[in-house]
Measured scan of single mutants.
Amino acid sequence: MEVRTIKVFTTVDNINLHTQVVDMSMTYGQQFGPTYLDGADVTKIKPHNSHEGKTFYVLPNDDTLRVEAFEYYHTTDPSFLGRYMSALNHTKKWKYPQVNGLTSIKWADNNCYLATALLTLQQIELKFNPPALQDAYYRARAGEAANFCALILAYCNKTVGELGDVRETMSYLFQHANLDSCKRVLNVVCKTCGQQQTTLKGVEAVMYMGTLSYEQFKKGVQIPCTCGKQATKYLVQQESPFVMMSAPPAQYELKHGTFTCASEYTGNYQCGHYKHITSKETLYCIDGALLTKSSEYKGPITDVFYKENSYTTTIK
């Protein structure tokens, strides 16, 4: 009895394709271990004539594949690729409408935090270190965002349907971005203890939790000093293409032309909904596939993004 075979390709990165001759009487799992086709788990399936010449994702289970996976995804987590594939199996079914010149995501599976993050990423200057993220990001900007969303979920250790947080998501993504040249110098002034300067680099240099107003941050924000008295913390120097200011959701007025974009969060910790506000020729609110415009805006804002380049204080 002759062994019926077909020729397929296996890959971990969709760049390096490895030619395989597979036995049609055995499952993919018996031949390769966990195997995925377009995100779908085909591990328990036997090869079919229609699979001839198709590319299958496999887990990096030998040295060659491990090197290829690390170079593309910059992670050695053995569960990463499987999590990416199972997320992709959902995100490829989502709709990605162009809204006001940006790629958004039609609401499904509690994905409003991903839509808000995706919209924000198209408006701030950011370059990702893992080629996987950078490639998928370019495709997302062009309207094909399924891979990018699935990668975000995998890097953030999230599953489809789980509630997510924009600030946490951005923080994970910033860790995989090139923020080497970003720098922030802060000064804390206390009447009792004097003053202390701190220099922050990388992710810490672009994120701040405690106030939404970048102007206020430049002037000074009140913080408790270690001595128990009130101290003032203010920005001395900022070198970065953008800054992200966050605070627990509270009524906040966004003035046209003073910011790049913002995240609105309605609801409580267990259950809520994100919308995205962007400042173009007027203010726009993007909620999944829905767009509304207004000249002014007041609502429960939790993150505001500002364009920056270089700032030095005039406070002496």
Rank of each mutant, 00 (worst) to 15 (best):
Lys93His: 14
Ala142Trp: 03
Leu114His: 01
Val42Asn: 06
Phe9Asn: 15
Val188Leu: 09
Leu17Gly: 04
Ser310Gly: 11
Glu162Gln: 12
Leu186Val: 10
Ala177Leu: 10
Tyr311Glu: 06
Lys158Cys: 04
Asn157Pro: 09
Asn14Ser: 10
Tyr57Met: 06
Ala154Ser: 06
Tyr84Glu: 02
Ile286Phe: 06
Val203Pro: 11
Tyr306Ile: 06
Gln31Ser: 08
Gly299His: 05
Lys191Ser: 12
Ser294Asn: 13
Gln270Pro: 15
Leu235Ala: 05
Val185Asn: 05
Cys261Phe: 01
Ala108Lys: 04
Leu173Met: 15
Val304Asn: 05
Lys255Trp: 07
Ala289Trp: 00
Asp23Ala: 10
Ala69Leu: 05
Gly164Gln: 01
Gly101Arg: 01
Thr91Lys: 06
Ala154Glu: 00
Ile315Tyr: 15
Asp77Val: 02
Gln216Gly: 05
Gly202Lys: 03
Phe174Gln: 01
Ala136Met: 08
Asp23Met: 11
Leu65Gln: 12
Ser86Arg: 11
Glu281Leu: 01
Trp94Pro: 01
Gly299Tyr: 04
Met245Phe: 11
Ser246Ile: 04
Ile223Glu: 09
Ile277Ser: 05
Ile301Ala: 05
Gln216Phe: 00
Gly220His: 04
Gln98Thr: 12
Thr27Met: 15
Thr199Gly: 05
Lys298Gln: 13
Lys54Asp: 11
Ile15Trp: 07
Thr64Trp: 08
Pro300Val: 15
Thr76Pro: 08
Cys261His: 05
Phe70Met: 13
Val42Arg: 02
Tyr284Lys: 04
Gly299Arg: 06
Ile124Met: 06
Gln98Gly: 06
Ile315Thr: 13
Gln222Phe: 14
Lys229Ser: 09
Cys225Trp: 01
Lys191Thr: 11
Asp38Asn: 12
Asp180Trp: 06
Cys227Glu: 01
Tyr155Ala: 00
Val243Arg: 05
Tyr72Ala: 13
Ala140Gln: 00
Gln222Ser: 12
Asp165Gly: 10
Asp165Ser: 14
Gln230Lys: 10
Gly299Met: 06
Tyr36Val: 01
Leu119Cys: 07
Cys225Pro: 05
Met85Cys: 07
Lys183Tyr: 10
Ser213Asp: 14
Ala115Arg: 07
Asp303Ala: 12
Thr5Cys: 15
Asp62Ile: 02
Asp135Arg: 11
Ser213Trp: 02
Thr266Phe: 09
Tyr269Asn: 13
Glu296Lys: 14
Ile286Val: 06
Pro97His: 12
Ser25Met: 12
Cys193Thr: 03
Asp180Tyr: 06
Asp109Cys: 02
Leu65Lys: 09
Lys95Trp: 06
Asn268Ser: 08
Thr103Ile: 06
Ile105Leu: 06
Gln270Arg: 08
Leu290Ala: 10
Ile277Arg: 06
Ser213Gly: 05
Asn157Lys: 10
Tyr297Pro: 07
Pro300Thr: 14
Tyr265Phe: 10
Ser240Thr: 06
Leu121Ser: 04
Asp165Cys: 13
Gly257Leu: 05
Asp23Asn: 11
Leu173Ala: 03
Gln197Tyr: 08
Lys233Met: 14
Trp94Cys: 02
His90Gly: 12
Ala40Thr: 11
Leu37Tyr: 12
Glu162Ile: 04
Leu212Met: 05
Gly143Tyr: 00
Ser79Tyr: 05
Cys271Met: 12
Glu162Lys: 07
Met170Pro: 05
Asn111His: 02
Glu71Ala: 11
Ala154His: 02
Asn61Leu: 11
Asp63Thr: 12
Gly228His: 03
Val58Pro: 02
Glu215Leu: 03
Val99Arg: 03
Gln222Arg: 13
Thr19Ser: 15
Tyr306Pro: 06
Thr19Asn: 14
Cys156Tyr: 07
Thr64Glu: 13
Val203His: 15
Phe305Trp: 12
Tyr84Ile: 02
Val206Asn: 04
Met207Tyr: 06
Thr282Ala: 10
Ile286Cys: 02
Gln98Leu: 15
Ala40Gly: 11
Thr278Asn: 07
Lys127Thr: 10
His90Asn: 07
Asn100Gln: 13
Pro248Ala: 09
Lys93Met: 05
Asn110Asp: 11
Ser263Lys: 04
Phe174Ile: 05
Lys7Pro: 13
Lys201Ile: 08
Met26Ile: 07
Ala247Trp: 09
Tyr96Pro: 00
Met209Gln: 10
Thr313Pro: 08
Thr314Gly: 12
Gly272Pro: 11
Tyr234His: 06
Thr91Tyr: 00
Asp165Val: 12
Gly143Val: 01
Pro300Tyr: 13
Glu281Ile: 00
Gly143Ile: 02
Ser310Lys: 14
Asp63Arg: 15
His51Gln: 12
Asn49Cys: 14
Cys227Pro: 04
Lys307Ser: 13
Ala115Val: 01
Ala231Thr: 02
Gly101Gln: 07
Ser171Glu: 11
Ile124Cys: 08
Val67Ser: 14
Tyr28Pro: 02
Val67Gln: 11
Cys156Glu: 02
Leu212Tyr: 06
Val189Glu: 14
Ala145Pro: 11
Tyr252Glu: 08
Glu144Lys: 10
Asn268Gly: 06
Met207Ala: 06
Leu291Asn: 11
Lys280Gly: 10
Gln175Arg: 05
Leu290Asn: 11
Ala117Thr: 15
Gln197Arg: 14
Glu281Val: 01
Asp63Phe: 06
Lys158Thr: 05
Gln197Pro: 08
Phe242Lys: 08
Asn129Met: 07
